[in-house]
Computed example of a mutant assay.
Amino acid sequence: MTAFAPNYETRKRVEAHPIASVGAKAVLVELPNGDTRSVAVPPGFSARPPAVGDMLVRYADGYLSHCPADVFLRDATAIAPERVAVVEEPRVPRFPLGGRPHP
């Protein structure tokens, strides 16, 4: 994926896009400009498989998740495009040395 560009605010700022199609190793997401992008997902991405219409959510540390769109949009507030700041690709490991999860 490209550099992290949070476009929604929940309790954290996240990047989220509607899922347009689901494959075995990737999902296709719809971007705000009408384009689509393929995003690789790891094996066993979720206990509940993603579905078309769900939101693919990327956190600042690179962690990927998905959520039904109605649930996500009920609790998230879109960030105005002029306030979306692109930041560098996350470099923080999800599980740093010592095995403790990143908060």
Rank of each mutant, 00 (worst) to 15 (best):
E88A: 15
P43R: 14
G23Y: 02
V39Y: 09
G53P: 01
P96H: 10
G62V: 11
A40E: 13
R13T: 05
R100H: 13
V84G: 00
K25S: 15
A78R: 13
H17L: 10
H66V: 05
D54A: 04
D61W: 02
V22R: 08
F45R: 12
P6V: 02
E9K: 13
A78Y: 00
A51H: 09
A16E: 00
S21N: 02
F4D: 10
V27A: 11
I19C: 02
R91F: 07
P50L: 05
A69C: 08
E9M: 12
T77H: 09
A24W: 05
A26C: 07
G44M: 11
G23H: 05
P101C: 04
R37I: 09
Y59E: 11
V84H: 01
R94E: 14
D35F: 04
E89N: 13
E89H: 11
T2E: 12
F95P: 00
P68G: 02
L73M: 08
V41C: 04
P49M: 06
F95I: 15
E88M: 08
E15P: 01
D70W: 06
H102F: 13
R48Q: 06
R13V: 00
V39S: 02
R58M: 09
N33A: 11
K12E: 09
D61E: 05
V29R: 09
V57N: 03
R94Y: 12
